[in-house]
Design a protein around this nucleic acid. Sequence first.
DNA 1: ATAAGGATTCCAGCCACTGGAAGCTCAAGG
DNA 2: CCTTGAGCTTCCAGTGGCTGGAATCCTTAT
Lengths: 129, 129
Amino acid sequence: MNIGEVSERSGLPPKTIRYYEDINLVRPLRSDNGYRSFRESDIHKLAFLGRARALGFSIEDCRTLMGLYEDETRESAQVKAVAKEHLAEIDNKITQLKSMRETLSHLVEACQGDHRPDCPILKDLSRGV
Amino acid sequence: MNIGEVSERSGLPPKTIRYYEDINLVRPLRSDNGYRSFRESDIHKLAFLGRARALGFSIEDCRTLMGLYEDETRESAQVKAVAKEHLAEIDNKITQLKSMRETLSHLVEACQGDHRPDCPILKDLSRGV
DNA sequence: ATAAGGATTCCAGCCACTGGAAGCTCAAGG
DNA sequence: CCTTGAGCTTCCAGTGGCTGGAATCCTTAT
């Protein structure tokens, strides 16, 4: 199967698929004409990667998860550890974003947003140096 | 004032301050020895930038906000517009992260995390191709 | 024969820094 | 005066995860 069809079936852009080959996340075969030739198992892998990425896992996490997936002797504790750590990072990000949101929304509400130059947002950003 | 002291007073690493000069966010003077020579106004600017960045504004947004800050004839509506757009982006990110969090926390809870290989997390990631 | 569509490679760029190397200046101590 | 160390300079490269674009090749249809 050529990259175009694989792209449609996996939902990943061809560029991304080539990139994943570059960094050895997939290893498609090659046809005589030099085209990549994907097996069903490659598509399976790519879809796996797509979903892991959609959950925000880093490429390195994805590599680890793929490895565990293919390792019949894995312990689910290993998978859970990776996922828990990632979950904690997500929570951190959410916390940080919420704090930004808090501050920013207050400022936005306080700003008249009219033709006059006075602006609590700028005032806050330039407060005490 | 040299970059080290400016770094302490503004809270930004020297590398970042140099970078901000590179991209013309600040324009410190130069001493005879070639060292950057910062005025109070430069520190003020850098602190402004640091706070804007801490609220998650992009560098380009920061440039715009600095421009508005220095423009006496600005209209607060312009500032508010920038801030509101950024707020919307933050909200989008939070929404996306929360959705990841939802999915991931369910999966983590469902996973036994023991010595056995069976794992709902991997099962989910590899679901229907 | 040619044109269109898809494949290939490779290089560059995104964002906002950050690390590191090589070399300069300056202040303090022996 | 010499050395040592801290602090400053520039420049190049790397981060993550792609994405865009150019130049070229392969395949298929007209």
